[in-house]
Write a protein that binds this DNA or RNA. Structure first.
Lengths: 335, 335
DNA sequence: CTGTTAGCGCTTTCAT
DNA sequence: ATGAAAGCGCTAACAG
């Protein structure tokens, strides 16, 4: 374990002071072109390696951004995360990743860890805990900037949100336009804000068309992405609905084979729509009408936003709402 | 911006020295129970916040592990990454994430960045660059431990590998057993080691059954996960193969609708198999025969491995090869 | 444009 | 069981 080369070694070997070396290394314009070149060459020659620990200690910055996501094995979140990583990397930042797995306890732990690690900023995807608490404090008081994705309410943090409400409204309206009058809505739950917004968009569209919001056509089942047990409730009605709008593609794709094996023809008997444009929706038969959110763009946008809040983006970044798109496929239209 | 509380402030307030505070905070056993309690209470009271920068500077450790993955929007890799994050988190480590996007340039950049960031260890998923080079050096010389997943050859790094070769051999053998004699293999390329191993396993199985390896039945097309253009080559043969073994489920799922729309019956005319057990394979019709790899276990295993190499695992961890499983579904068997 | 000086906050011998 | 003292390697006034 030989002694490591420091800027002092370079300074000595190049007959300048350590501060000059430090400045040259950081390409401060105040250092002459020639001097800098000499110093850089010497650093290279000696095998110098920058020590971020010492730098961090002085500057109190890490160039690390924390990201908390509910899960990774999901088309939407993995896309968003991919966009974030790409953009942060390009900006010279590291992405520190934690998963909440939809569990408040893990989410809090992740927040604490990121705070202790002194990240320069944080991006929260689909937060579990919407209320301020002892853990969120350091972030919510503005000490460390936070961008929240997909939640309209979070302790005053900046927000990049896809417009779940409008998208859901448009999708529901599409179903009405193709002739549906009894549209069921299946969702995992309303605690996650984005799902709540989808439910509200659905209701609003019905009301706009003077259709009633029928209570037992709104099905909330946190297992709906895993098994379609709740469909019994629908089948036990005297008449089937003429459409089902699933708040997530995965839920739709889970239900479709079950529906078909029960003799339900799609879209003739029931029209189906999902939400999220998961690749599954292009594979399932019939292909699934859904909403696309450009997850990668959501990610890139939130990354740029956090960098701008940190002040590392020269041009001030004004987050644009990421545009969604209605994707109409066979499951909602007769051929 | 008020002055931050340091261990010196605690020391003063508790009438002890800074070193005692430091030891108490780290729960060194040499500090008396009573003293420690007093110190911790005082720290709490003053709102002390540990400063990892100073600690890092002294100890030269970060408790950060770098992870490089080709991509995130992929069933296998996102599963592995999920397992890694979970396990590292549990061990008190942060996961620093970078994507190579299958591009050697980005991979090298990620390696450099992680090295500069002084991560304590690194996990590489599906490395693009298999040869040692200037970037890998610091990692390959053992200065920083590395675990590589899914590649049997990488600059002497420790390796957690799923056994692509055997899995591929078994899958091919299954196809032979159900009666196939002309089995095509479609793969994205052989530069990624795991795909090369799958190709080799395929060839070996054919040879074991005294079947020839037909050159134009091995199709290498880096776009095969996006579009099935290469199928023309297969259709232009005088006779169709009686099976196609796709080196990835995504490629299989991309091709199947195209095959069926060309009047190919599956499995009657051509039997199909994929690789990876992507959820898509349960949705597509007919459901896809494939190999499952328990990606989360692969991730957890590699995380434990790296922690053990760092010396942060008390029990020495001996990585077990993660067991794969042949999943037989409709695409390869007649009902 | 470059040098001097004084730390950043913690850990770690070495004493006692 | 506790304290004194010496840095870890870099950066940022301030001075010239």
């Amino acid at each position: 374990m030989s002694k490591h080369i420091t800027i002092y070694d370079i300074a000595e070997a190049s007959q300048v002071s350590a501060s000059t070396v430090s400045r040259a290394l950081r390409k401060e314009p105040s250092i002459g072109r020639e001097t800098r070149k000499r110093i850089l060459a010497k650093a290279e020659e000696l095998g110098y390696r920058f020590n971020p620990f010492a730098s961090n200690l002085r500057t109190n910055r890490t160039r690390n951004i924390g990201v908390i996501t509910p899960k990774l094995d999901d088309y939407y979140f993995s896309g968003v995360l991919g966009g974030i990583e790409r953009e942060l990397s390009n900006g010279g930042y590291n992405t520190i990743l934690h998963q909440s797995l939809g569990c408040a306890h893990r989410e809090k732990a992740a927040i604490s860890t990121l705070h202790r690690s002194r990240v320069d900023g944080m991006i929260m995807l689909g937060p579990v805990v919407a209320q301020e608490n002892e853990y969120t404090q350091a972030f919510s008081n503005g000490e460390v900037p936070v961008v929240v994705v997909d939640s309209s309410a979070w302790w005053g943090a900046r927000n990049i949100s896809v417009d779940n409400y409008t998208a859901s409204y448009e999708l529901t309206t599409h179903l009405i336009q193709v002739g549906c009058r009894e549209i069921a809505h299946v969702t995992t739950g309303t605690t996650v804000t984005s799902f709540n917004e989808r439910l509200n968009g659905y209701k609003a569209a019905l009301q706009y068309s003077s259709l009633p919001v029928v209570e037992n056509l709104v099905i909330i089942d946190d297992k709906c992405e895993t098994s379609p047990d709740y469909l019994d409730r629908l089948f036990s009605r005297e008449r089937l609905p003429d459409a089902i709008f699933f708040a997530s593609d995965v839920a739709a794709v889970t239900a479709i084979p079950f529906l078909r094996s029960n003799g339900v023809r799609i879209p003739e008997d029931i029209r189906i729509a999902g939400f999220g444009n998961d690749p599954l929706g292009r594979i399932i038969e019939p292909t699934l009408t859904t909403i696309d959110f450009a997850p990668v763009d959501v990610g890139r946008s939130s990354a740029r936003h956090i960098l701008s809040l940190i002040g590392d983006l020269h041009s001030k970044f004004e987050p644009q709402p990421v545009k969604h798109q209605l994707i109409i496929r066979h499951s909602s239209t007769t051929k």
